[in-house]
Simulated assay, not measured.
Amino acid sequence: MSFDINGKVALVTGANRGIGKAIAESLLKHGAAKVYAAVRNLDSVQPLVETYGDRVVPIYINLAQPETIVQAAQTATDVAIVVNNAGVLRQADPLAEDAIAALQFEVDVNVFGLMRMAQAFAPVLKANGGGAFVQLNSVVSLKSFANFATYGASKAAAYSMTQSLREVLGAQGTVVVSVHPGPIATDMAHDAGMGQIAEPPSLVGEGIVTALRDGKFHLFPDSVAQQLGGAYASFAANVVEADPVAA
């Protein structure tokens, strides 16, 4: 099921920098009427506002604070596209002393935050004709690495939840996209020591526009992600995206 963003209103979490900012810019470039830039620091969105004027509306959301998400959904009642981009990363291997604390922190934002966003905005999207819900997952949702063990576990859980959301939200006419970037040039990638191989955030923003247009559930936007996505394609098509098996 394809979705045209032209003339639509969008909301992007973590829109003040990196991938989130690139997504907001791509949506605006391709005709989105307005983007709610959902952030924890409203002043951080000022560069976008200066560039795009009243087509960018700062709005407060903290994925770890459910009440802020509910309030945003009550405010942004004209939203037809929700992009849940915001997430957190703590590098920890499974035996690290702080591994459990790291995983708890990441699950609260990366998994529970996703669920909170979906629960709050599903009725809004339905009221506006179905719309689209885009979730930023990661290549580590499919392939874990020791130093990113807890982050990968949280993203694997988020990916699993996104698959379920595809079925549930699809019943109300909402398109769902699961995005799996590899190393992208962001502060997070730099801090994780992947800056030298990282690719531009615009690949994600433009990829989302294309995936929505083409009705694709999975998006592997960069070269590293595409290598993994190519290997995963058969399973994705024949198992993940196949119709549910009747009980």
Rank of each mutant, 00 (worst) to 15 (best):
A64L: 10
A92V: 13
S160Y: 08
G129V: 12
V56F: 10
T162P: 04
V111R: 10
R40T: 11
V109P: 10
A72V: 15
G215Q: 01
G31S: 12
G193M: 05
S160N: 15
T51V: 12
K155L: 09
V70L: 12
S138C: 02
P244A: 01
A171N: 11
S234H: 12
I61W: 07
I197Y: 07
H180Y: 06
Y60H: 15
F105Q: 15
A156Y: 03
A10G: 09
Q104D: 08
Q135R: 07
A38G: 00
A96P: 07
V139Q: 06
A233C: 00
E97K: 10
Q227Y: 00
R116S: 00
Q65C: 08
Y60D: 15
L212P: 00
F3C: 10
P66S: 09
A192R: 07
T51D: 09
D243K: 06
L89S: 10
D93P: 07
E199M: 12
Q196I: 04
L89Q: 14
E167S: 14
M1A: 14
H218I: 02
V9K: 03
A80F: 02
Y151I: 11
S138G: 07
A15D: 12
Y36S: 10
G193Q: 03
V204S: 03
G182K: 00
Q135K: 05
S164R: 12
I81T: 02
E67S: 13
Q227V: 02
G215D: 02
V140Q: 04
F235I: 00
L95Q: 12
A101G: 15
E241G: 01
N85A: 08
A76G: 11
A242M: 05
A10L: 03
V49K: 13
